[in-house]
Structures are given as structure tokens and as C-alpha cells.
Amino acid sequence: MQDVKSASIPRRVATVVVVAVLTAGWAAGCGGGDTAGSSTTAAEFSGYTRTPAPSVASVTLPSADGTEVGFAASPGGVRLVYFGYTSCPDVCPTTLSDVKRAIASLPEADRPKVSVDMVSIDPARDTAEKLTQYVTTFVPTGVAVRTDDDARLRAAARAFGADYEVTPGADGNPEVIHTAELYAVDDQGRVVLIWPFGTARDALARDLRRLLAGERPRGVAGPSTTPRPTADPSTGQPAS
């Protein structure tokens, strides 16, 4: 007996049923009564943070249309930045798909507050056109960011805490490895939250909502609405 026969249920119905099963699973807390994470108090974010939160306020890279892109979010907003590549069939689309769903789960008025940048770590293969098509498939307003200047790319990645390596593969196709994390940048240009690959989609959405509401992980100062000194004495860096 082939279970594949279950595919003989009309496809659309099957999809709906699958969605329904998942939704119901969520509602019922499917996946365990021991989900310690889900019972954590509001103090915990699912993503993690570095202390101090890395500043990427001065980092810029060219977008696919040639304009320089800075990475600070719009006032009160959150900028999601991902270092990936378009030939990536598994990890990158999983994350971008989660981003898409997370944004869609926000109240409509909040959605424009979230911007998404995908920075190619494989610019040799990712043409501006290809990269733009890739990112906008997931997020229509997503910005494709690429540079052929590896020193610039590497410096930018380092500022976020991202790393990557592209090496010639045995089969002629480059082998790419990357940190595969998603970064949330606030309107001060600080990386306030980092989601590793493996973060559950609903956890990502929950964190995003909280960031938009002005919450910050422990160890990260509040959003820009909080009055800040003109210079931080501990770092000597002017608040810009």
C-alpha cells in the first residue's frame, strides 16, 4: 500500500487540510507539553543578542540598482538583514519564507515598518537581476544588496557578526557556507536581535512584534524614543 495515495485527495483540499492540521496543532500546543520556551515570560526573546549590540550604523553597501544602502531601520521600525545567496535551495528560502510569514502576521499598519535586505555572499553568481528577483519573491519590498568588492562585503558581514566562505567545489559549482542567521537592526543602527537558523517561525514573528512595540532584549537599551545622551561615556561614541 502506497501512502502516496493520500495525494489523490484533491491537492488544494490537501493543502488546506495540512494548513488546518498545523494551525490546529499550534492552537492545541501540538509538539509537546514540555515546551519550556513557550512558557517563558515576556522577558525572553527567542533570538539572541550580543552585548553590546553591534552597531552597523556606519555600514553601507550598494543595492542592486547601484544606490548605497545603509542598514539602520526607519524611525520606530525594524530592518531585517540576511546574508545569503540565491543558489541556496534549503536554508535561505526557509528563512526568507519565515520572514515573509512573520511580516504577514503583523497588523497591517505595522508591516511597512519592517524592511528586508538580502545581501549576497555569492555575488559572482548572483547578478543584480537574479538577486532582486529572488528576494522580492519572498518580500515584494525586499532590497537586493550586492557588491563585487569582497573586502567591503566581508567588512560589512563582520560588522553584523556574519561569516561566509565560497570555495570551488569538486563538481565545478562553488561550495558556499555561511552563518545563516537573520539580523534585526533598529533605527539607531544596532543589531538588537539575532535569530539563528532553526528559530521557529512563530517565535520569529513574536520577537518581531515585540521589537516593533519598542521592547528590547536584556542588555540592549531601549529604542530611540528613549532620550539618549549625546555621547555614550562607556564607548565614547557619539550617538548619531
Partner: peptide, 13 residues
């Protein structure tokens, strides 16, 4: 990375 990772429950991946 040397940063301690904290995974959420029910990760998809």
C-alpha cells in the same frame, strides 16, 4: 561563533 545559542522550542529546521 562563540556566542551561546539559545534555540526556541519547536524549531522547524
Amino acid at each position: 561563533s562563540s556566542t551561546t545559542m539559545k534555540m526556541d522550542e519547536g524549531s522547524e529546521m
